[in-house]
């Protein structure tokens, strides 16, 4: 694991189309988020009218003027070349999975595979969204898949509403404690 000093102050949000990455960054950011949305022209158009094509960008302002950048990757796989570029030097990954997708467990597996190296050197927390409208698979199904994938220790995985600042902050807090359970917020 790289030292904290070697990392940039940025947290990566990734996940499936429509999982709420842009919304989550918007919920947490202290600035109006910068978004590179474009009119969806492929299968994504069935899910939402616009989608992120390069990145979303938000900021957490820390006391003393320091900033933590919040980067959202595009959800579509054809923009996956952006994933490595954006995640380089990041503190960790918040992965959002849309439970209403046809095969969310496969989505999970795909994204964990794509970010394997990044996760191995940092940490990941997983937010499962849209569970109110699509309650299955439940969290235990995700946990079973994570065990099958050999993730040890098991990452934090929560039900999440990307619109909720509390939920997004809880995901990021879990990410920080995963990196260092000895952290104290005093």
């Amino acid at each position: 694991m790289r030292s904290e000093r070697a990392r940039h102050n940025k947290i990566i949000f990734s996940g499936t189309v429509g999982a709420g990455k842009s919304t989550a960054i918007n919920a947490l950011s202290d600035i109006a988020t910068v978004s590179t949305e474009a009119v969806a022209s492929d299968a994504t158009a069935r899910l939402k009218p616009t989608t992120t094509v390069a990145m979303d960008y938000g900021v957490l302002n820390l006391p003393g003027g320091e900033k933590v950048m919040l980067y959202g990757t595009p959800g579509q796989e054809r923009f996956s070349f952006m994933w490595d570029i954006l995640s380089e030097g990041g503190i960790g990954l918040v992965l959002l999975i849309n439970n209403a997708n046809p095969d969310p467990l496969q989505d999970l597996e795909g994204y964990l595979g794509a970010f394997r190296q990044f996760i191995a050197s940092t940490a990941v927390t997983i937010g499962v969204t849209h569970m109110d409208s699509a309650p299955e698979p439940g969290l235990d199904a995700y946990r079973s898949r994570l065990i099958k994938l050999g993730l040890d220790p098991m990452p934090a995985i929560f039900r999440a509403d990307a619109r909720s600042r509390d939920d997004v902050a809880t995901l990021v807090k879990a990410l920080l404690y995963t990196l260092n359970p000895g952290l104290n917020d005093a």
């Binding site: 904290e4 947490l28 957490l60 302002n61 902050a169 260092n180 952290l183 917020d185």
Partner: peptide, 23 residues
């Protein structure tokens, strides 16, 4: 756990404090 507390909290601690205040 950080056994030797640094003079300045780490970036992770500072983010955590920010989030604690935010939630």
């Amino acid at each position: 756990a950080q056994t030797d507390r640094p003079a300045r909290p780490s970036i992770l601690s500072r983010i955590l404090r920010k989030l604690r205040d935010a939630v």
